[in-house]
Design a protein around this nucleic acid. Structure first.
Lengths: 319, 319
DNA sequence: CGCGATGATGCAAAAAATGCATCACCAACA
DNA sequence: TGTTGGTGATGCATTTTTTGCATCATCGCG
C-alpha cells in the first residue's frame, strides 16, 4: 500500500525512538526518512516528535496521531480481508496474543483446524502475560488475546470467559496422586516448581499460599511449562497448570496421559485439581479491543475458538 | 495531506461516476487520475470500479473500500481537531445536516454563540430532509443531523430528542387567532399553505388530515418557510411550523412577534398550537453516526445545542 | 454508419523522493 | 576542557515517480 508508507514510517520511528535506527530498519537513508517526517509534521501543522539529543520521542500530538495511524492500518487490514472474502476464498491474517497456558495444547489444535478449512489465512502468535497482551490489543499489534488473569484496562472487550481450576501436576508415583483433590496444606514440604510471578497461575497461587503461611520448598521457577514438565521426569516435584494447558481434547478431567493427544513423557504424569475451597478457580479471558471491528478471518476464528471451548469445557464458558 | 490524495481521488471519481469528470474537478488530467486508480486497484489486488461505456461505477469491493476511505477522512479530521485542541485554541470544522425547521432561528443563534467562544471553528450547513440527512451521516459528509421526522436507519445514534407540537401560523387579525388551540376541524374552508410532502411537519399533518376527511383548500406548497411566512402578508392564509422554527429564544409559547428576536413582518403574525388530541407532537432528533467518535469541535457543539435546547424547551428534551 | 463520449497506454517532460556529504547540536567521558 | 560518538537538519546532484500530451480501442446513440 503505497499511500500508507509515510504513516508506516512514523510508526517505526516511534517504536525505534530514533530516525536513523528506523531508517536502517526500513532500508532507506535517514535523510529521506527525516524529510518524510518533516513533511508530515508540516502538513499536520504541528511537530509530532520531540527532538532529543539521543533520538526522538512522540509528543502528545504524536501519540494521538500514532493511535490514528495504527487504527488506520488495522482497519485497512479488515477492509482487505473483507474484500478478499468477496471472492469466496477467505484470506487474511490473524494476530493472537496468548499466555503460555492456551498456547500449549489448545491453540495449536484450534489454529490447525481453522487452517484446514481456510488455508489462505495466516496466523501470528505472541506469547505474553496479561498486561502486555492488553497493550498489544491497544496498539493493534494483536487482534485477539487469551489472558488467564484479571482484565485491567477498560478498553478491552471480553468476548468469552472460561473458568479454570488450577491443577497440580506430578509423577504418577507421587504420594498425592492417590487423592482426588490436592489441599494447600498437602504442599508443605513438597518440592515445588512454580511459573514466573507474572503468570496468572502463579498469581493465584501466591495469594493462596501466602495467606496460609505454608512452608514451601520452591526448587525452580520458569516461564516455560514445557521445561517444567520435562524436568519432572528427572526429579520428582510438583508443578501447576490449568486444564487448557494440560489437555486440549478431553476437558477438565485433568488426568494427564489418559488423553490420546498426550504422548511420550507425559504418560508418567498425572494432574489433580487443587481443592476449590483452598484456591478459587481463575478465569481465562478471550478478548479483543473494545469498539474495534475485527477482520473477517479474525472474527470467524474468534467464533470458532469460543465454540470449541464450549464443546470442551461446556459449563465453564460464559458470555 | 499529501498521503491521502489518492484516496480522495477515489472518492471524487466514485461521486462523479466518471474519471474524466473527476479529473476536471480535481484539476489534473484524466490520464494521471486514471493511472492512480489503476495503481490502487493493483495494490488492493482487485478492481474497485466497473468500467461502463459511459463512465465507471463502484463494484462491491469498491463500496467497501470507499466506506473505509471516508471513515479515514472523518477520523483524520477528528485527530487534527484533537491535536489542534492541544494548543489551547479550539479549531475545527463542524458539518451539520438539518431540516429547514431548526435552520431558521435556532441554528443561526447557536452557531453564532459557539463561534463567539471559538472563532477558529468553521461550520458547514446542509439543508435537507430526514432520509438525506441520515445518508449524509453515513457517508460522513455531515457530523451532526437535526431531523424532525422518525429515524429510519439503524446506524444513527440519537443523542437527544425534542418533542414539538405543530403550530398554526396566521395573521393576527385571523378569526382563529382568538383561540388558544386550533382544532383540525377549524381548518375546513381555510386557505392553507403547506410545506413539501418530504418535510416532517407535512407528514404529521397528512396523517392527521387524511384521517379526518376534512375539506381542504391548499393554495400553495413550498419548501421555504421564509417564502410561506412572507406570503401571508399579502394574502391571508394559514401555514404550519414547529416552535423551534418560530422562535429561537422564548420556547414553546409560540406567539410569533411577541419575542424580541422576531422583527419586521412577523409582528403581524401569531401562532397557535394545534390541539394535541388532533395532532400528536412530533419529535426533533439530534443525532450523529452510531459508533463514530466526533471531532472535538463537533462533539462540543453537540453538547452545546443540547444544553441550549434544554434551557429553552426544558421539559420537551430527552435522552 | 459516424459521432461523441468513455477508459487505457506509449513516450517525453515535470515533479518529487532519495542519497551523499556535511553541518550543528548535545551528552558522556577522558 | 577537549574529544568522541551519537543525534537530527540541510544543500545539491541523482534517481524515481508522477504527470501531460497524443493516440487507440470500445461502446451507446441517432
Amino acid at each position: 500500500m503505497r499511500f500508507m508508507t509515510s504513516l508506516r514510517f512514523i510508526d517505526v520511528v516511534a517504536r525505534e525512538g530514533s530516525i536513523r535506527k528506523a531508517a536502517d530498519k526500513l532500508a532507506i537513508t535517514s535523510t529521506a526518512l527525516n524529510r518524510r517526517i518533516l513533511q508530515i509534521e508540516d502538513e499536520i501543522g504541528q511537530p509530532l516528535f520531540e527532538r532529543l539529543p539521543g533520538g526522538v520521542r512522540l509528543n502528545t500530538a504524536g501519540e494521538i496521531f500514532l493511535q490514528h495511524i495504527r487504527s488506520q492500518f488495522a482497519d485497512l487490514a479488515r477492509v482487505q480481508s473483507q474484500i478478499a472474502d468477496l471472492s469466496g476464498i477467505r484470506r487474511g491474517h490473524v494476530q493472537i496474543a496468548s499466555g503460555a497456558d492456551a498456547l500449549r495444547r489448545f491453540l495449536p489444535e484450534a489454529i490447525a483446524s481453522y487452517r484446514a478449512a481456510h488455508p489462505a489465512v495466516s496466523f501470528d502468535l505472541a506469547r505474553c502475560y496479561g498486561e502486555e497482551a492488553e497493550s498489544r490489543l491497544f496498539s493493534l499489534d494483536s487482534d485477539i488475546a487469551l489472558i488467564f488473569a484479571p482484565i485491567r484496562a477498560a478498553h478491552v472487550h471480553v468476548a468469552a470467559t472460561l473458568r479454570q481450576q488450577v491443577h497440580c501436576v506430578m509423577p504418577a508415583s507421587h504420594r498425592l496422586a492417590g487423592k482426588d483433590h490436592v489441599r494447600i496444606r498437602d504442599l508443605a514440604g513438597e518440592r515445588l516448581v512454580l511459573p514466573t510471578p507474572q503468570s496468572g497461575v502463579r498469581q493465584l497461587l501466591d495469594t493462596a499460599l501466602l495467606r496460609r503461611n505454608v512452608d514451601l520448598d520452591v526448587i525452580l521457577e520458569s516461564d516455560s511449562f514445557e521445561f517444567m514438565q520435562n524436568f519432572l521426569h528427572f526429579e520428582s516435584a510438583l508443578f501447576f497448570q490449568i486444564p487448557i494447558a494440560i489437555n486440549a481434547g478431553s476437558g477438565s478431567e485433568g488426568v494427564t496421559g489418559s488423553a490420546p493427544d498426550m504422548a511420550g513423557y507425559d504418560e508418567q504424569l498425572v494432574s489433580r485439581p487443587i481443592d476449590p475451597s483452598d484456591l478459587p478457580a481463575g478465569t481465562l479471558h478471550i478478548c479483543h479491543l473494545k469498539g474495534r471491528v475485527l477482520p473477517v478471518a479474525a472474527a470467524k476464528f474468534l467464533d470458532e475458538i469460543i465454540t470449541s471451548l464450549r464443546v470442551r469445557f461446556g459449563d465453564g464458558v460464559d458470555q
